[in-house]
Design a binder for these strands. Structure first.
Lengths: 341, 341
DNA sequence: AAAATTGCCGGTAACGATTCCGGTAACGCT
DNA sequence: AGCGTTACCGGAATCGTTACCGGCAATTTT
């Protein structure tokens, strides 16, 4: 309707200076009770709201956090919820930008947000990201930044991640305990450290159980259902096909499941399957799919807390790294020996 | 590393005024080629980026759209992607805030964004929202706003929605054609117009086929899986239980499915089921669930386009309403008569 | 009674950029 | 020579707010 009232309007009608109004509105010091009251009342009446834009310029901060995520699937949007919660509490607003797993898009988004719009970043890398110069630019401009979930050792920054090696180990060890011998892994893009780490866990479990690694059982695959479906079809067409599959993300496990069903193979008897992330759909499908839970909400909260701490302290936190623990969830797709844990 | 260079820095080192620098940087008019070149080169060298904060204050706009959504499930995040795409194209950045289906949270988010942070809003209401005063405040401040998906007639604003009555009609008509007689509806909260509209479609289909409405078959239910699960259990425990269920959202259809499976009833023979939204999980479960597709991405894009138009034009668009058409997707859960369309 | 303290307030600069207005110098024309 | 035009540039205001400094009057201290 009408224009937003400013501090000047109050000053003018009350015939006092803007500085006094400003002080009355917050200081409480150096202002007569009477004046203060008058100012407060008029402010109320005019529905005065301080102009944040002016404050941003003055204080050189916006109390806004830029959150860059590869997409907004169930797990990531849960993380974002965690970030949101902590940020709101601390008085920050969150800007979420999806890079759609695209390197170029990630760069554009970063640039957009960087130009004085946000105070800092909380970032999870896209699959597609190979160079991290655009992220380094953030650090060059001295803006605090925390990496979470999909991180890279190419960047010296505080990180919040899952113990991915442990996750890979848990899943594989479980399959071994269930008596599976030829365990394939549907891994993610090699660029993604997270997928390499999960694979290391896989390899570690094999080694601990004296199982020889078969390179043919290691498949690198895009982080999506369709790709995993086709990759699994190929795996199942092998002469000596695997008798279990560990997919490093539930999306891929779903793709694998579809391929397995198409081949009329029975889970868990003919073939075992374990995914990762505890996506809700893994509980819904038949058979239900075993998975490794990642504490997504907690991870988001932790990342945001770290960011806030970084904002408020001056010490160098680039070496800090918080590692959360995964949890194995056993369901029908891999539970061959009933009664075993 | 070092401070961001400003226009003053350029002016000082070149010993010219800031106004000249400013003009050199964009006007191209009224500035000597030589000076202009020097400015450009120095700007490049110092990696000068205009301070957006200052511009925002001056121009009184931020080129930012506040998007308020109840949550970020699959459908909504698809809509957000659509918004994002159009907004980015038009030079706008998007701030997404989840209200978590909470009225209070919605108010807080709106307030946060309103205080000069965003140029306008694209809003989908939370389930919980009954009063819309906080939204009216947006309009009072003359900020453009577009409602989408979950709208309310209590607000006079441009709207982009699905034809929900048609959706309800399509689903119900399909069940009738498949021979189901006692068709129950799992509807949403009464506050939500969208759920009422879907119900109207349901009623219309019954009427057109001369089926008497049985009030016991109409269940109002929260927009989530658990609630639907319990509601369905009650429905199935009735003396004359329904032989089909139309759930007005796939989340609820999943809940219904779980209850049906628990009772060892067979879909589609013992009971039919149709959901709505075409959530990916409806394709994954056994049996696959029929659903009504909503063009979520398109809907998001349309809302954003409308917003941009509203920003750029002065005419009153509050009466505009764009209605997108739903599409029935028939799957196993309701396909009794094979070969029928 | 003079000095110091306190309470209260206003003026001004600053944040970084744009824009309007006015001014100066050079040049051309009559 | 005088005037008008053009090309180029600088000053100042502006956006809304806060912070610093200084000033004045009233009150207290010495």
């Amino acid at each position: 309707m009408e224009k937003q009232a400013t501090i000047k309007d109050i000053a003018r009608t009350l015939k006092i200076s803007t500085s006094t109004v400003s002080r009355a509105l917050r200081d409480t010091h150096d202002v007569k009770q009477e004046t203060r009251k008058a100012v407060m009342e008029l402010a109320e009446q005019l529905n005065y709201q301080p102009n944040q834009l002016a404050l941003h310029l003055l204080k050189k901060q916006t109390h806004t956090i830029g959150v860059i995520v590869p997409n907004l699937d169930f797990v990531i949007s849960t993380m974002v919820k965690g970030i949101d919660e902590v940020a709101l509490e601390a008085g920050y607003t969150v800007m979420v930008c999806q890079s759609n797993e695209s390197y170029g898009r990630e760069i554009v988004n970063t640039k957009r947000l960087m130009d004085s719009l946000v105070d800092g970043f909380i970032v999870s890398l896209s699959c597609d990201t190979m160079l991290v110069d655009h992220i380094k630019k953030i650090q060059d401009k001295n803006k605090p930044m925390v990496l979470f979930d999909r991180v890279t050792s190419a960047l010296n920054a505080p990180k919040v991640i899952l113990d991915n090696e442990e996750a890979g180990f848990l899943a594989t060890q479980h399959l071994i305990e269930q008596g599976y011998k030829r365990i394939a892994i549907l891994s993610g893009p090699k660029k993604l450290e997270l997928s390499n780490n999960r694979m290391e866990g896989y390899l570690k479990a094999l080694k601990q159980n004296n199982i020889k690694v078969d390179k043919d059982l290691i498949v690198y695959c895009d982080f999506n259902q369709d790709y995993a479906y086709f990759a699994t079809k190929e795996l199942l067409a092998m002469k000596r096909r695997p008798d279990a599959i560990f997919a490093i993300a539930d999306k891929m496990a779903i793709g694998a499941m579809l391929a397995i069903k198409e081949k009329k193979l029975n889970m868990p008897n003919d073939i075992g399957l374990v995914g990762m992330n505890n996506d809700p759909s893994t509980r819904l499908v038949t058979p239900t799919i075993s998975t490794v839970e990642m504490p997504a909400f907690e991870l988001g909260k932790t990342a945001a807390k770290m960011f806030i701490e970084m904002m408020h302290s001056d010490k160098d936190m680039n070496d800090e790294q918080i590692v959360l623990r995964p949890k194995l969830i056993i369901r029908e797709s891999s539970l061959k020996i009933v009664g075993s844990k």
